[in-house]
């Protein structure tokens, strides 16, 4: 039998020692209170969009509250379902969480027949973050002076009307589908890749109207390039106080807010979820964070809406609301 050379033996010992230290280190990390390392937050949309901005603004204060950095990872594709699928399959240790939204956790089951997750079963809801109200906007020379006239014109001229949307499965597509179905109209739907190009053609008067989140439209409305006919919320938004609500305009049932909420993979320990929920709530109470979110036209949840249970209820309610409407459009998510 050959003897192991001395040098190699030393190496071997070294390796063993290192291994032991690593093991100790590893177990030590487990015993440490959560969170002991940075947390990855998957945002299923491109950097710079509304959901990403909300995730970054809330994430900044959450990092302070938790004492660990929250790192945003943008995983895009298939209307946000690619990123959420990855999040659902991540290790449920609280170090991977995700920002889901109305599309990924309410509209997706109706739009994606091969969806690899169940919004109700595969997640531990952490809490509702921020909602952005939906506006109904038209080109600036649309022949209507208020929302009632706008609706009347749409109904009377539906064969001539063109609606723009930011792609099948986008917030602007789903919310306008609800709007159209409540009015009983079938306008020609012109598909764009994203809000930007759709907005460009709306400003240029190539299309007649669209629905989208307030943050995407507010400045163009203030600049007089497009006209907002209604905001789909109970109360007017402080960001656009001149825009009447759908309730004022005689369409009280059209109430839509594109909500964003944090989720953890199924099986994440309860106390970890509670800690994340607490950090999110602290961020939503922080005056600086609040101001930034409100300036964007965001709607912040009140204390009772911030619980994990309330979010679970919201997901259930929203799936029931969107599924029949979206199935009726016959569209498959992009």
């Amino acid at each position: 039998m050959k003897q192991i050379p001395v040098l190699n033996r030393c190496r071997l010992l070294q390796a063993l020692a290192l291994g032991a230290v690593a093991c100790l280190w590893g177990s030590g990390a487990h015993a440490e209170p959560y969170p002991s390392q940075p947390i990855t937050e998957i945002v299923p949309f491109a950097a710079g969009g509304p959901t990403d901005v909300i995730a970054r603004i809330t994430g900044e204060h959450m990092s302070k509250a938790l004492g660990q950095q929250i790192v945003i990872e943008n995983v895009t594709g298939a209307g946000g379902t690619t990123g959420i699928t990855r999040g659902a399959q991540a290790k449920p240790d609280g170090y991977t969480i995700m920002m889901g939204h109305m599309g990924t956790h309410a509209a997706a089951p109706a739009l994606y027949p091969k969806l690899k997750y169940d919004p109700q079963k595969d997640f531990e809801p952490i809490g509702l973050a921020v909602g952005t109200p939906i506006l109904i906007v038209a080109k600036k020379d649309f022949p209507a002076k208020d929302f009632k006239e706008f609706v009347a014109y749409l109904k009377a001229n539906q064969s001539k009307i063109n609606e723009a949307h930011a792609g099948v499965g986008s917030v602007s597509f789903t919310t306008c589908s609800l709007f159209d179905s409540q009015l009983g109209i079938k306008p020609a739907k012109v598909a764009y890749r994203g809000t930007g190009p759709a907005l460009n053609d709306l400003m240029g008067g190539q299309v007649d109207y669209m629905c989208d989140q307030i943050v995407n439209l507010a400045e163009q409305i203030k600049g007089g390039k497009i006209k907002a006919h209604a905001i789909a919320t109970e109360k007017r938004s402080p960001a656009l106080p001149d825009v009447p609500t759908t309730k004022e305009g005689g369409m009280p049932n059209f109430q839509v807010t594109a909500w964003n909420a944090l989720f953890a993979p199924k099986g994440t320990p309860k106390e970890v979820v509670a800690k994340l929920n607490d950090a999110l709530s602290k961020a939503l109470d922080d005056p600086g964070t609040r101001k930034r979110l409100l300036d964007l036209g965001g709607v912040l949840p009140e204390a009772p809406e911030r619980t994990s249970a309330s979010l679970a209820g919201l997901v259930k309610k929203e799936i029931a609301r969107w599924t029949p409407i979206l199935k009726a459009t016959g569209a498959v998510g992009e």
């Binding site: 491109a46 950097a47 710079g48 969009g49 509304p50 990403d52 901005v53 970054r56 603004i57 994203g194 930007g196 190009p197 907005l199 460009n200 400003m203 943050v215 507010a218 400045e219 163009q220 203030k222 600049g223 007089g224 390039k225 930034r292 300036d295 964007l296």
Partner: peptide
């Protein structure tokens, strides 16, 4: 306030985070 390409869309995000929404 319309980003003509993906990089400009990121600029929109950078401005939005600071509370300046690009527009007319």
């Amino acid at each position: 306030g319309i980003p003509p390409n993906a990089v400009m869309a990121l600029m929109v995000g950078a401005m939005t985070i600071h509370g300046i929404i690009p527009g007319p």
